[in-house]
């Protein structure tokens, strides 16, 4: 598993008191892990800090609400970590 996945899973576990072993690449952060919107803000804050990025949470949420993206695209762990890797790359480019 990727370094990003391990770091994000650690953050989620520490922030939301979800057992670390319950978090897998296929976990849906909302549907499977039960993370609510306020806990998600804490998680995004910690991820932003850890990776020096700014997750565009508003635009992701808007895309989902508008029906232009599924929640899986952004909120399943492996996809979330992929998006984070893209943001890190874009930041360092």
């Amino acid at each position: 598993m990727s370094d990003t996945f391990d770091k994000v899973a650690d953050i989620i576990s520490e922030t939301s008191e979800i057992p670390r072993e319950d978090i897998t690449p296929d976990s849906h952060t909302i549907d499977d892990l039960g993370i609510d919107s306020l806990d998600f803000l804490d998680i995004v804050f910690a991820i932003d800090k850890e990776f020096g990025i700014k997750i565009p949470l508003e635009s992701w949420t808007q895309e989902v609400n508008d029906g232009n993206a599924s929640t899986e695209e952004y909120f399943v762990m492996k996809n979330l970590c992929g998006k984070i890797d893209d943001l890190i790359k874009a930041n360092s480019a």
């Binding site: 995004v44 804050f45 800090k49 949470l57």
Partner: peptide, 9 residues
Amino acid sequence: VHDGSGFAI
């Protein structure tokens, strides 16, 4: 502390 997307701390 942090000016995030849709939130601030």
